[in-house]
Computed example of a mutant assay.
Amino acid sequence: MEMNNTFKIIKTPDLFEKEHPNPDQLIIDFLAHCHPSPDLFILAIDTENSEEEKVVDQIKQLQEFFGENSTEHLVILFEDIKRLPSHDHLKKKFKTRLATANENLSVECKKWCSDRPRFVYDYKNYSEDVVKRRKAALEKISQNGDPLDQHGRKGAYRVTPPTSQDASAVAAPGHPVGNSVSEAGDDIFNIVLLGLSGTGKSASANTILTALGTKNESKHLFKSEANSMMTTTRCEVKYVKNSSRGRVRLVDTPDFLDDTLEDAQAQVDECKKYCQREQCVVLLVVQAGRFTESERDILPKLEDVLGWKIREKTIVLLTHGEELEESLDDYVRAQAGLLNLVEQCGGRYHRFNNKSKKNKQVRKLIKKIPNYEHSSQF
Protein backbone atom coordinates (compact mmCIF):
# COMPACT_ATOMS: atom_id res chain seq x y z
CA MET A 1 0.00 0.00 0.00
CA GLU A 2 1.35 3.40 -0.99
CA MET A 3 1.77 5.58 2.04
CA ASN A 4 0.84 9.27 1.86
CA ASN A 5 -0.96 11.88 3.92
CA THR A 6 -4.34 11.37 2.30
CA PHE A 7 -7.12 9.32 3.87
CA LYS A 8 -10.87 9.29 4.24
CA ILE A 9 -12.72 8.68 7.48
CA ILE A 10 -16.30 7.36 7.43
CA LYS A 11 -18.31 7.73 10.61
CA THR A 12 -21.22 5.31 10.57
CA PRO A 13 -24.58 5.47 12.32
CA ASP A 14 -25.24 2.90 15.03
CA LEU A 15 -24.98 -0.38 13.10
CA PHE A 16 -25.94 -2.31 16.21
CA GLU A 17 -29.32 -0.62 16.74
CA LYS A 18 -31.76 -3.54 16.71
CA GLU A 19 -34.83 -1.50 15.79
CA HIS A 20 -33.32 0.42 12.90
CA PRO A 21 -35.88 0.47 10.04
CA ASN A 22 -33.42 -0.80 7.43
CA PRO A 23 -30.11 -2.14 8.76
CA ASP A 24 -29.27 -3.80 5.44
CA GLN A 25 -29.21 -0.43 3.74
CA LEU A 26 -26.84 0.93 6.38
CA ILE A 27 -24.37 -1.74 5.30
CA ILE A 28 -24.91 -1.03 1.60
CA ASP A 29 -24.34 2.68 2.18
CA PHE A 30 -21.20 1.96 4.14
CA LEU A 31 -19.84 -0.30 1.39
CA ALA A 32 -20.71 2.36 -1.19
CA HIS A 33 -18.85 5.07 0.71
CA CYS A 34 -15.68 2.98 0.93
CA HIS A 35 -15.89 0.89 -2.26
CA PRO A 36 -14.02 -1.24 -3.26
CA SER A 37 -13.35 -1.90 0.43
CA PRO A 38 -12.26 -0.22 3.66
CA ASP A 39 -8.65 -0.41 4.78
CA LEU A 40 -9.44 -0.43 8.47
CA PHE A 41 -12.41 -0.79 10.82
CA ILE A 42 -12.37 1.15 14.09
CA LEU A 43 -14.83 -0.03 16.73
CA ALA A 44 -15.22 2.82 19.21
CA ILE A 45 -16.17 1.57 22.68
CA ASP A 46 -17.53 4.04 25.20
CA THR A 47 -17.14 3.51 28.92
CA GLU A 48 -20.75 2.43 29.33
CA ASN A 49 -20.27 -0.49 26.91
CA SER A 50 -16.72 -1.46 27.83
CA GLU A 51 -17.63 -4.65 29.70
CA GLU A 52 -16.11 -7.63 27.93
CA GLU A 53 -19.44 -9.28 27.17
CA LYS A 54 -20.72 -6.14 25.42
CA VAL A 55 -17.48 -5.68 23.51
CA VAL A 56 -17.52 -9.29 22.29
CA ASP A 57 -21.17 -8.95 21.22
CA GLN A 58 -20.26 -5.96 19.05
CA ILE A 59 -17.25 -7.74 17.56
CA LYS A 60 -19.38 -10.75 16.64
CA GLN A 61 -22.02 -8.47 15.15
CA LEU A 62 -19.33 -6.83 13.05
CA GLN A 63 -18.25 -10.27 11.84
CA GLU A 64 -21.85 -11.06 10.95
CA PHE A 65 -22.07 -7.88 8.89
CA PHE A 66 -18.70 -8.03 7.13
CA GLY A 67 -17.38 -11.58 7.52
CA GLU A 68 -15.18 -13.48 9.94
CA ASN A 69 -11.95 -12.00 8.58
CA SER A 70 -13.07 -8.42 9.21
CA THR A 71 -11.59 -8.49 12.71
CA GLU A 72 -8.11 -8.92 11.21
CA HIS A 73 -8.57 -5.36 9.96
CA LEU A 74 -10.14 -4.08 13.18
CA VAL A 75 -8.93 -1.73 15.88
CA ILE A 76 -10.95 -1.65 19.11
CA LEU A 77 -10.73 1.89 20.43
CA PHE A 78 -11.33 2.43 24.16
CA GLU A 79 -11.88 5.76 25.90
CA ASP A 80 -9.92 4.73 28.98
CA ILE A 81 -6.40 3.32 28.66
CA LYS A 82 -6.98 1.42 31.92
CA ARG A 83 -9.35 -0.89 30.04
CA LEU A 84 -6.64 -2.24 27.74
CA PRO A 85 -4.98 -4.79 30.06
CA SER A 86 -8.28 -6.48 30.97
CA HIS A 87 -9.18 -6.89 27.28
CA ASP A 88 -5.73 -7.77 26.00
CA HIS A 89 -6.69 -11.42 25.32
CA LEU A 90 -9.17 -10.24 22.70
CA LYS A 91 -6.24 -9.43 20.41
CA LYS A 92 -5.36 -13.10 20.08
CA LYS A 93 -8.93 -14.40 20.10
CA PHE A 94 -10.12 -12.16 17.26
CA LYS A 95 -6.76 -11.26 15.63
CA THR A 96 -7.46 -7.61 16.27
CA ARG A 97 -5.75 -4.60 17.85
CA LEU A 98 -6.54 -2.50 20.93
CA ALA A 99 -5.90 1.21 21.23
CA THR A 100 -7.02 4.47 22.79
CA ALA A 101 -7.59 7.79 21.08
CA ASN A 102 -4.44 9.92 21.02
CA GLU A 103 -2.69 12.49 18.86
CA ASN A 104 -0.75 9.79 16.99
CA LEU A 105 -3.79 7.68 16.12
CA SER A 106 -3.85 8.64 12.42
CA VAL A 107 -0.20 7.68 12.02
CA GLU A 108 -0.77 4.39 13.83
CA CYS A 109 -3.81 3.60 11.64
CA LYS A 110 -1.75 4.06 8.48
CA LYS A 111 0.95 1.84 9.90
CA TRP A 112 -1.57 -0.89 10.77
CA CYS A 113 -2.97 -0.73 7.22
CA SER A 114 0.47 -1.04 5.66
CA ASP A 115 1.47 -4.35 7.23
CA ARG A 116 -1.42 -6.49 5.95
CA PRO A 117 -3.37 -7.08 2.73
CA ARG A 118 -6.38 -4.87 2.04
CA PHE A 119 -9.71 -6.10 3.42
CA VAL A 120 -11.87 -7.73 0.74
CA TYR A 121 -15.64 -8.01 1.22
CA ASP A 122 -17.02 -11.20 -0.36
CA TYR A 123 -20.46 -9.79 -1.29
CA LYS A 124 -22.17 -12.93 -0.07
CA ASN A 125 -25.11 -11.03 1.41
CA TYR A 126 -25.29 -8.06 -0.95
CA SER A 127 -24.79 -7.53 -4.67
CA GLU A 128 -21.71 -5.53 -5.65
CA ASP A 129 -23.71 -4.03 -8.52
CA VAL A 130 -26.12 -2.52 -5.99
CA VAL A 131 -23.20 -1.06 -4.04
CA LYS A 132 -21.65 0.40 -7.20
CA ARG A 133 -24.94 2.02 -8.20
CA ARG A 134 -25.29 3.45 -4.72
CA LYS A 135 -21.75 4.82 -4.89
CA ALA A 136 -22.50 6.46 -8.26
CA ALA A 137 -25.65 8.01 -6.82
CA LEU A 138 -23.75 9.48 -3.87
CA GLU A 139 -21.05 10.85 -6.16
CA LYS A 140 -23.67 12.39 -8.44
CA ILE A 141 -25.28 14.16 -5.50
CA SER A 142 -21.89 15.50 -4.45
CA GLN A 143 -20.94 16.62 -7.99
CA ASN A 144 -24.24 18.43 -8.42
CA GLY A 145 -23.39 20.52 -5.41
CA ASP A 146 -26.41 19.36 -3.44
CA PRO A 147 -25.77 20.30 0.20
CA LEU A 148 -26.21 16.84 1.62
CA ASP A 149 -26.67 18.00 5.17
CA GLN A 150 -29.90 19.81 4.23
CA HIS A 151 -31.60 16.46 4.63
CA GLY A 152 -29.50 15.30 7.53
CA ARG A 153 -30.99 13.05 10.16
CA LYS A 154 -29.91 11.35 13.31
CA GLY A 155 -27.85 8.30 12.45
CA ALA A 156 -26.76 9.46 8.98
CA TYR A 157 -23.29 8.69 7.63
CA ARG A 158 -20.70 11.40 7.97
CA VAL A 159 -17.68 11.47 5.70
CA THR A 160 -14.40 13.29 6.00
CA PRO A 161 -13.26 13.68 2.36
CA PRO A 162 -9.81 12.39 1.28
CA THR A 163 -7.50 15.10 2.54
CA SER A 164 -4.64 15.61 4.89
CA GLN A 165 -6.36 18.70 6.27
CA ASP A 166 -9.23 18.76 8.70
CA ALA A 167 -12.56 19.13 6.86
CA SER A 168 -16.17 19.63 7.79
CA ALA A 169 -18.20 16.43 7.69
CA VAL A 170 -21.33 16.19 5.57
CA ALA A 171 -24.42 14.14 6.28
CA ALA A 172 -26.20 11.85 3.85
CA PRO A 173 -29.74 12.73 2.72
CA GLY A 174 -32.56 11.92 5.09
CA HIS A 175 -36.10 10.88 4.34
CA PRO A 176 -38.72 13.59 3.96
CA VAL A 177 -42.12 12.06 3.39
CA GLY A 178 -45.17 13.39 1.61
CA ASN A 179 -47.71 12.89 -1.13
CA SER A 180 -46.78 12.50 -4.77
CA VAL A 181 -48.81 11.63 -7.81
CA SER A 182 -45.99 12.12 -10.31
CA GLU A 183 -46.09 10.26 -13.59
CA ALA A 184 -44.67 6.77 -13.87
CA GLY A 185 -41.66 6.05 -16.06
CA ASP A 186 -39.39 7.63 -13.47
CA ASP A 187 -36.77 5.98 -11.30
CA ILE A 188 -39.10 5.44 -8.35
CA PHE A 189 -39.70 1.91 -7.07
CA ASN A 190 -43.41 1.17 -6.61
CA ILE A 191 -45.05 -0.94 -3.92
CA VAL A 192 -48.60 -1.57 -5.17
CA LEU A 193 -51.19 -3.07 -2.81
CA LEU A 194 -54.05 -5.00 -4.41
CA GLY A 195 -56.90 -7.06 -2.96
CA LEU A 196 -60.55 -7.12 -1.98
CA SER A 197 -62.18 -4.53 0.25
CA GLY A 198 -61.70 -5.01 3.98
CA THR A 199 -58.55 -7.12 3.79
CA GLY A 200 -56.30 -4.42 5.25
CA LYS A 201 -54.59 -2.86 2.21
CA SER A 202 -54.56 0.67 3.62
CA ALA A 203 -53.47 -0.46 7.09
CA SER A 204 -50.65 -2.49 5.56
CA ALA A 205 -49.58 0.48 3.44
CA ASN A 206 -49.41 2.58 6.62
CA THR A 207 -47.33 -0.09 8.36
CA ILE A 208 -44.82 0.04 5.50
CA LEU A 209 -44.91 3.82 5.27
CA THR A 210 -44.23 4.20 8.97
CA ALA A 211 -41.38 1.68 8.94
CA LEU A 212 -39.70 3.36 5.98
CA GLY A 213 -39.59 6.68 7.69
CA THR A 214 -42.80 8.71 7.83
CA LYS A 215 -43.83 10.51 10.98
CA ASN A 216 -46.88 9.13 12.68
CA GLU A 217 -49.17 11.94 11.60
CA SER A 218 -52.59 11.36 10.05
CA LYS A 219 -51.90 13.65 7.09
CA HIS A 220 -48.98 11.43 6.08
CA LEU A 221 -50.95 8.16 6.25
CA PHE A 222 -53.58 6.46 4.14
CA LYS A 223 -57.16 6.53 5.39
CA SER A 224 -57.87 3.17 7.02
CA GLU A 225 -60.97 1.82 8.75
CA ALA A 226 -61.56 -1.61 10.26
CA ASN A 227 -64.60 -2.73 8.27
CA SER A 228 -65.51 -4.72 5.18
CA MET A 229 -66.96 -1.71 3.32
CA MET A 230 -64.91 -0.02 0.63
CA THR A 231 -62.88 2.75 2.27
CA THR A 232 -60.43 3.36 -0.57
CA THR A 233 -62.33 4.35 -3.72
CA ARG A 234 -59.43 5.80 -5.71
CA CYS A 235 -55.76 5.02 -6.21
CA GLU A 236 -53.85 6.92 -3.55
CA VAL A 237 -50.12 7.51 -3.62
CA LYS A 238 -47.53 8.48 -1.04
CA TYR A 239 -43.78 8.21 -1.18
CA VAL A 240 -40.69 7.97 0.94
CA LYS A 241 -37.46 9.51 -0.25
CA ASN A 242 -34.08 9.04 1.38
CA SER A 243 -30.46 8.36 0.64
CA SER A 244 -30.63 4.62 1.14
CA ARG A 245 -33.68 3.81 -0.98
CA GLY A 246 -33.79 6.56 -3.57
CA ARG A 247 -37.54 7.01 -3.96
CA VAL A 248 -40.14 4.46 -2.95
CA ARG A 249 -43.77 5.02 -3.88
CA LEU A 250 -46.61 3.26 -2.08
CA VAL A 251 -49.82 2.84 -4.07
CA ASP A 252 -53.03 1.98 -2.21
CA THR A 253 -55.81 0.83 -4.53
CA PRO A 254 -59.56 0.25 -4.43
CA ASP A 255 -61.08 -3.17 -4.98
CA PHE A 256 -60.91 -3.43 -8.77
CA LEU A 257 -63.24 -6.45 -8.73
CA ASP A 258 -66.04 -4.60 -6.94
CA ASP A 259 -68.88 -3.91 -9.40
CA THR A 260 -69.90 -0.80 -7.43
CA LEU A 261 -66.52 0.95 -7.92
CA GLU A 262 -67.09 4.30 -9.65
CA ASP A 263 -64.81 5.34 -12.52
CA ALA A 264 -63.35 1.84 -12.41
CA GLN A 265 -61.45 2.05 -15.69
CA ALA A 266 -59.95 5.41 -14.76
CA GLN A 267 -58.66 3.91 -11.50
CA VAL A 268 -57.28 0.85 -13.32
CA ASP A 269 -55.46 3.13 -15.78
CA GLU A 270 -54.03 5.10 -12.85
CA CYS A 271 -52.79 1.90 -11.22
CA LYS A 272 -51.19 0.73 -14.46
CA LYS A 273 -48.88 3.76 -14.41
CA TYR A 274 -47.23 2.43 -11.28
CA CYS A 275 -47.68 -1.31 -11.71
CA GLN A 276 -44.76 -1.91 -14.10
CA ARG A 277 -42.67 -5.05 -14.42
CA GLU A 278 -39.23 -3.55 -13.94
CA GLN A 279 -39.87 -1.23 -11.02
CA CYS A 280 -42.57 -2.60 -8.78
CA VAL A 281 -43.63 -5.27 -6.35
CA VAL A 282 -47.30 -6.20 -5.96
CA LEU A 283 -48.60 -7.03 -2.50
CA LEU A 284 -51.77 -9.10 -2.86
CA VAL A 285 -53.43 -8.54 0.51
CA VAL A 286 -55.49 -11.36 2.04
CA GLN A 287 -56.88 -11.44 5.56
CA ALA A 288 -55.59 -14.48 7.43
CA GLY A 289 -58.40 -16.66 8.72
CA ARG A 290 -60.84 -15.24 6.17
CA PHE A 291 -59.80 -16.62 2.79
CA THR A 292 -62.92 -16.44 0.63
CA GLU A 293 -64.16 -18.24 -2.48
CA SER A 294 -63.83 -15.02 -4.46
CA GLU A 295 -60.12 -14.93 -3.64
CA ARG A 296 -59.43 -18.37 -5.12
CA ASP A 297 -59.24 -16.97 -8.64
CA ILE A 298 -58.39 -13.37 -7.76
CA LEU A 299 -54.93 -13.48 -9.31
CA PRO A 300 -55.93 -14.26 -12.94
CA LYS A 301 -58.78 -11.74 -12.64
CA LEU A 302 -56.40 -8.97 -11.55
CA GLU A 303 -53.97 -9.98 -14.27
CA ASP A 304 -56.76 -9.64 -16.81
CA VAL A 305 -57.61 -6.18 -15.45
CA LEU A 306 -54.00 -4.94 -15.42
CA GLY A 307 -52.92 -6.66 -18.61
CA TRP A 308 -49.87 -8.66 -17.53
CA LYS A 309 -48.80 -11.57 -15.30
CA ILE A 310 -48.37 -9.70 -12.05
CA ARG A 311 -47.71 -13.05 -10.30
CA GLU A 312 -44.08 -12.65 -11.39
CA LYS A 313 -43.78 -9.68 -9.03
CA THR A 314 -46.37 -10.60 -6.39
CA ILE A 315 -46.09 -11.45 -2.70
CA VAL A 316 -49.22 -12.67 -0.90
CA LEU A 317 -49.50 -10.51 2.22
CA LEU A 318 -51.57 -12.03 5.03
CA THR A 319 -52.95 -9.49 7.48
CA HIS A 320 -54.23 -10.20 11.02
CA GLY A 321 -51.50 -12.83 11.22
CA GLU A 322 -51.30 -12.36 14.98
CA GLU A 323 -54.72 -14.02 15.27
CA LEU A 324 -53.57 -17.36 13.87
CA GLU A 325 -53.30 -20.12 16.45
CA GLU A 326 -50.97 -22.23 14.30
CA SER A 327 -47.78 -21.21 12.53
CA LEU A 328 -48.10 -19.28 9.29
CA ASP A 329 -46.59 -22.14 7.27
CA ASP A 330 -49.03 -24.64 8.75
CA TYR A 331 -51.95 -22.32 8.10
CA VAL A 332 -51.03 -21.80 4.45
CA ARG A 333 -50.51 -25.53 3.86
CA ALA A 334 -53.89 -26.34 5.43
CA GLN A 335 -55.79 -23.96 3.10
CA ALA A 336 -55.83 -25.53 -0.37
CA GLY A 337 -57.08 -22.41 -2.14
CA LEU A 338 -54.61 -20.14 -0.35
CA LEU A 339 -51.75 -22.56 -0.94
CA ASN A 340 -52.57 -22.60 -4.66
CA LEU A 341 -52.56 -18.78 -4.71
CA VAL A 342 -49.19 -18.67 -2.96
CA GLU A 343 -47.73 -21.24 -5.36
CA GLN A 344 -48.92 -19.15 -8.33
CA CYS A 345 -46.84 -16.30 -6.85
CA GLY A 346 -43.64 -18.33 -6.73
CA GLY A 347 -44.21 -19.42 -3.12
CA ARG A 348 -43.83 -15.86 -1.81
CA TYR A 349 -45.97 -14.95 1.19
CA HIS A 350 -45.61 -12.91 4.35
CA ARG A 351 -47.55 -12.12 7.51
CA PHE A 352 -48.34 -8.65 8.86
CA ASN A 353 -49.54 -7.53 12.25
CA ASN A 354 -50.66 -3.99 11.50
CA LYS A 355 -51.09 -3.27 15.21
CA SER A 356 -47.41 -3.85 15.83
CA LYS A 357 -44.94 -0.95 15.85
CA LYS A 358 -41.94 -3.18 15.23
CA ASN A 359 -40.23 -2.58 11.89
CA LYS A 360 -38.73 -6.06 11.65
CA GLN A 361 -41.77 -7.43 9.80
CA VAL A 362 -41.31 -4.79 7.09
CA ARG A 363 -37.59 -5.51 6.73
CA LYS A 364 -38.37 -9.19 6.24
CA LEU A 365 -41.04 -8.34 3.66
CA ILE A 366 -38.64 -6.20 1.64
CA LYS A 367 -36.15 -9.06 1.47
CA LYS A 368 -38.82 -11.21 -0.22
CA ILE A 369 -39.22 -8.76 -3.10
CA PRO A 370 -38.31 -10.51 -6.39
CA ASN A 371 -34.80 -9.45 -7.44
CA TYR A 372 -34.50 -7.62 -4.13
CA GLU A 373 -30.68 -7.73 -4.29
CA HIS A 374 -30.69 -5.88 -7.64
CA SER A 375 -32.95 -3.05 -6.52
CA SER A 376 -30.89 0.05 -5.67
CA GLN A 377 -33.85 1.48 -3.75
CA PHE A 378 -33.44 -1.24 -1.12
Rank of each mutant, 00 (worst) to 15 (best):
M3I: 15
Q267V: 07
D304T: 14
V192W: 03
L341F: 00
P117M: 06
D304W: 03
C34S: 14
P23R: 13
P117G: 07
W112M: 14
E225G: 01
T314E: 05
G246S: 10
G289R: 13
V286L: 14
Q265M: 13
V56A: 11
R290L: 12
R97Q: 10
V281N: 07
K215S: 13
E52G: 05
T314K: 02
R153A: 11
Q361I: 10
D259K: 04
K93F: 07
S86R: 14
E325H: 05
K360I: 12
F256N: 02
L257H: 06
K110V: 03
L194Y: 10
R97H: 11
K91T: 06
S294I: 04
E128Y: 00
D329H: 03
A336T: 13
R83D: 15
P370V: 01
V237W: 00
T292D: 08
D297G: 05
N102G: 15
L339A: 12
V130Y: 03
E303N: 09
K82W: 01
T233M: 14
E312M: 06
V362A: 05
Q58G: 00
K223F: 09
G155D: 03
G213L: 09
I369D: 04
P21S: 09
I141H: 00
A171W: 03
E53F: 01
E322P: 09
K364Q: 15
E303G: 09
S182C: 08
I188A: 15
D297A: 12
V237R: 04
K82Y: 09
S197F: 05
K92I: 10
T163V: 04
E51F: 07
L26A: 00
R116H: 05
V305D: 08
K368C: 06
E139D: 13
L302Y: 14
K110G: 10
P300M: 06
Q150F: 09
L138W: 14
Q25N: 12
P254G: 10
E322G: 11
A266Q: 10
V362T: 08
S142I: 04
C345T: 02
K358Q: 12
E53D: 12
D330V: 08
D255A: 11
V170M: 07
K219F: 15
P161S: 04
C109R: 03
F78V: 07
E68M: 08
H374P: 00
